[in-house]
Amino acid sequence: MTEEPASGLRFRWKAMGCIWELTLCPDQPDAPALAEAAFEQVSLAERLLSVFLPSSDISRINREGQSGPVRVSPLTLRALAHAFQLSEMTGGAFDIACGALVRLWGFEGGEGRKPVEDEITQALKCTGRHNVLMDEAAVTVRLVRSGVRLNPGGYGKGFGLDLAMEALRAAGVHSALMHAGTSSVAALGVDCTGRPWQVGIRIPGQNEGHAAVLELQDGSLSVSGISEQSFSDEGRRFGHVLDPRTGWPVEREGWAVALCESAAASDALATAALVLGPEGTERILKGRGEARVIFYDERGRPIREVGGGPEPGGSRTESHVSE
């Protein structure tokens, strides 16, 4: 996914293992300072949630959470509560308490490998939000059994975007676009010409042009797909998106684009949508007017759009296939 080239001021930052970019309008006063403030929030999100920083709250929970309650930042507790509510809503199709599976399948920074059935059964016992206990009063988190690991992969970048957008909005910014490693993007207001921000979705393997251009206004968009980062075993191809309910990678090919106000939520929803497929996703979004998901096949052709009920909420989209 990339943004369309827009005439704006661009700021770049490296965090959570990817490049972040913020676009502000050329006439935005104090633009560099605002960019710094936004990235400070991203850095806060990373310090709280990254599994690659040994000092983050998540790493500490994963390391020490089985032996007792781990004190965390109240902001971490908010993020976890939000993520777990999203798991509940998606019937477990999205679940950050899936680190044991991610590790088992070698997706924690590794190449990927196919485990044996027994190992999957074992890891499944350590998967799911019921393995995580939060004490709101003491601001602690505890894991109920050893082997449980949190992996906020499908949530953390969105969380960083949410914090950054909230900071920009509080500073009086009316127009901004920020993306995290091109997998999630969040918009404040409209672009510098007064139109909704244009976000291009590029499908890997299709280098020319974009598969679709979506419009975004006061909302977020996340892309999840399978054709990148996959490995083969005896003719079967396994993608890096795991179904936390079965312990197996999703074999469906293609892409899901989720849209709603919160980037953390769109991040989670895009993952859940791949797991659930169009019908399942439509079911969970019923009656929740805010969010929508567009499905694309592996060649980038739109298949179906679900959700986005009578109250479209913050985000507005229009899609078309472009060359």
Partner: peptide, 26 residues
């Protein structure tokens, strides 16, 4: 869940079934 209010709402955790259920067990 789809809005950013989870960041700022004072009673967000209190409204969270996940947190409430766990507190009892915990």
């Amino acid at each position: 869940l789809f809005s950013r209010e989870y960041l700022t709402r004072r009673d967000f955790l209190k409204g969270s079934a996940a947190a409430a259920a766990s507190v009892a067990v915990f």
